[in-house]
Design a protein around this nucleic acid. Structure first.
Lengths: 152, 152
DNA sequence: ATGTCTGCAAACCTTTTGCAGGGGC
DNA sequence: GCCCCTGCAAAAGGTTTGCAGACAT
């Protein structure tokens, strides 16, 4: 498990972000740190692979990954997103509040879109859907990223 | 297999919309008619169920449904969409050119949005994603439909 | 007659669940 | 010590694939 952030600061990061009354197992801390360090949302398989790529004495079960992602989600610190281009769901910490992605159809990179271009879409749509009460939305931008364009 | 349209017009509908050189099996015609008559995009399971709900002498395999939906998609007359709220993909004929839905989170109804509110989003997003070439997008509106609001 | 399409069954992939043992608090 | 969490294995959905026979052209 590697990250740009110094190992000694992991504890304080966890301390600051941990949900109240949430049991601190080493599996949960490891998943949290992985998500914290990742620039992109991660799938359960990616998390599982990274967890098990380290010391082979440490084993992590797939079910543990899924159950804890769900637990994190319920605790309100993780967001699960299902993208139309991928078979698997992806997960990320809520801190970064990225809700939308530009997805490269070649390399499958997921680039967060900082601002949401939909803030005033609601009135527009609501008027044409008589009575439909909007509670959320999902937006994906598909295309070809900078690097993949160069490769061609 | 029932539909609002009179049975005698099925043949001409198929004649008009059938891809060139695409073999006309009764399974394919039936799937096509189902999609043609549906107001909402359908999942493979929904198509399968409707196909097999008729004369029990007529059997349709799941693989036939999937293979033909894929074949239709390759032939350019069907669109497959993966929605974030559903485990299954949904399929529809391209004719109606519905690309976006308002999805009721209670009853899972999928209401097509006639106009695309994203026609001028591209410049906006492209400028913040240096070099990302946009080729498409997916938008979902989530909420509670008229009927489900009344039920509460 | 040819090659494609079909049904059946098995495989596949992601995710969920049951259970017995282990580890936080 | 209690209860929640973990690992393992099996199951559960949705989708894909291999194969032998059937059908459209």
């Amino acid at each position: 498990m590697s990250c740009k952030i110094h190992a000694e600061s992991y504890d304080s990061i966890i301390e600051r972000n941990w949900p109240d009354g949430f049991k601190k197992t080493h599996q949960r801390k490891d998943i949290f740190i992985l998500l914290f360090c990742s620039e992109e949302p991660m799938s359960a398989a990616e998390i599982y692979d990274q967890l098990n790529s380290g010391d082979p004495k440490e084993k992590y079960a797939f079910s543990t990954v899924y159950r804890n992602l769900l637990a994190f989600e319920k605790a309100g610190i993780v967001t699960k997103t299902v993208l139309s281009t991928e078979a698997e769901a992806v997960y990320e910490l809520k801190k970064s509040s990225h809700k939308h992605y530009a997805i490269c159809t070649v390399c499958h990179r997921k680039i967060p879109i900082k601002t949401c271009p939909l803030h005033d879409i609601s009135k527009f749509v609501e008027s044409s859907l008589n009575g439909f009460e909007i509670t959320g939305h999902q937006l994906e931008i598909l295309g070809i990223c900078n690097e993949c364009q160069k490769k061609k």
